[in-house]
Design a binder for these strands. Structure first.
Lengths: 225, 225
DNA sequence: CTTCAAATCCAACAAAAGTCACAGTAACCC
DNA sequence: GGGTTACTGTGACTTTTGTTGGATTTGAAG
């Protein structure tokens, strides 16, 4: 059985509120590749991943993908729509066979109204998410792609909590979607970091060779490799 | 006297809670150009603009500026740090002579603990801000500068609530800081929109000539002007 | 071991954005 | 009105990112 206390939103909630919560949650299964919900659709509720891997992403008109997070158990998602009841702000698909708990907007609202600790957790978690989005916004405005890639490898702040795979295990295509660019560009940047001796190939795995160098690159704008 | 009910965070709060709130708020004045607080500094608290104009921004190592918002009365800011107590996520400066109310982190927390309506407002407002940041993140990942400029002129969703000046009154330098680019690039994009007949000069003011055209441009990635 | 699909590498090119330098123009203050 | 300052216009150039197309490698399945 899932230990709900490990989910930050439900930490330190008293037992009766928690059992209320659990009694309102529905379990749903998704095949690999199945859409859990789509951006713009009517609020799908509050989700908790209990099994599998979920991709949270947005897509533009031309079909380019921006992966916001890759989530494993026990991450939660769609917290914003769940609480304001408006449409989902992004898409969610099951990457592998996946199981989730879902709590509807209506139930969440009534639970929030009856349990103050839950409400307080919610405020703190939303504030936290806010900081993360702001950080990523600054990454996009100020950082070059090699810098963003270096940051991803350092598994720094922002990415660390959302992307539960080490970059080594991601394909270049996936990295590109996370950084908001294309596979080719990631390939080049990767070559650059290897040539510069910041990363090293160990067999076919990529490992960090010079953490300080990466750190420095992650903080400057220019590529200069 | 400021009507605090007009501030979304404090809407529908009962009178006694509100007077509590007000009794904990301090008023502070700032000269034009003065720093209200800096990014990374210890949490400065919850702010409400009651007079003047405040710029919220981040800056990178090379001194480039990203203006997140330009706020007039009765906007609030630094809501995230105020509630989580961590460092300020951005800088705030007074553009003109400015007056603000400030509520400290400690007081805000105690008020949130005692008034449920306030706490519920806070959740909703943070959720709203979350959506805004996500929208801007997507602007940065998917949209070209002409598209972002078109969106700014349409005063769409995101920008509308944060930038309280119509773009017409902003200098190209300011627009550049909002869009996360440089003055020359804004100048060129502006020329492009004028040439394409989407905007028109009326004396030295710029007005929208073709709203649908702007809308269309704002939704595509490529410049193609 | 072979085969096939997926992932990668790479080079050449196109487009967008950033930089630099300097000229023109408006606005503002004595 | 003259001079100063801030803002705007614009061309030439560089850098970065995106695109295309084909060659090569890899890994899993038969």
């Amino acid at each position: 059985m899932t230990d709900w206390h490990k989910i930050p939103y439900f930490a330190n909630i008293n037992a009766s509120a928690l059992s209320q919560l659990q009694s309102h949650a529905h379990c749903r299964q998704f095949q690999a590749g199945a859409t859990i919900f789509a951006e713009g659709d009517k609020c799908a509720g509050f989700f908790i991943v209990v099994e599998g891997l979920v991709r949270i992403f947005r897509m533009n008109g031309e079909g380019r993908l921006h992966t916001l997070s890759l989530l494993r158990p026990l991450a939660s998602f769609n917290e914003v729509a769940a609480v304001d009841g408006h449409s989902n702000p992004f898409n969610a698909v099951a990457v592998t066979q996946t199981a989730v708990w879902v709590i509807s907007h209506a139930h969440l609202i009534s639970l929030l109204a009856s349990d103050r600790a839950l409400l307080q957790n919610y405020v703190q978690q939303l504030a936290h998410q806010n900081r993360d989005y702001l950080e990523r916004l600054e990454d996009m405005t100020f950082r070059s792609i090699p810098a963003r890639l270096a940051k991803l490898f350092l598994h720094e702040t922002t990415y660390a909590e959302h992307i539960t795979e080490p970059p080594t295990k991601l394909t270049q295509e996936e990295i590109a979607a996370i950084l908001g660019t294309t596979r080719e560009v990631v390939g080049r940047a990767l070559r650059g970091l290897l040539n510069a001796g910041l990363l090293r190939k160990k067999g076919r795995e990529i490992v960090i060779a010079d953490r300080d160098g990466l750190q420095h690159l992650a903080e400057t704008h220019f590529s200069q490799i």
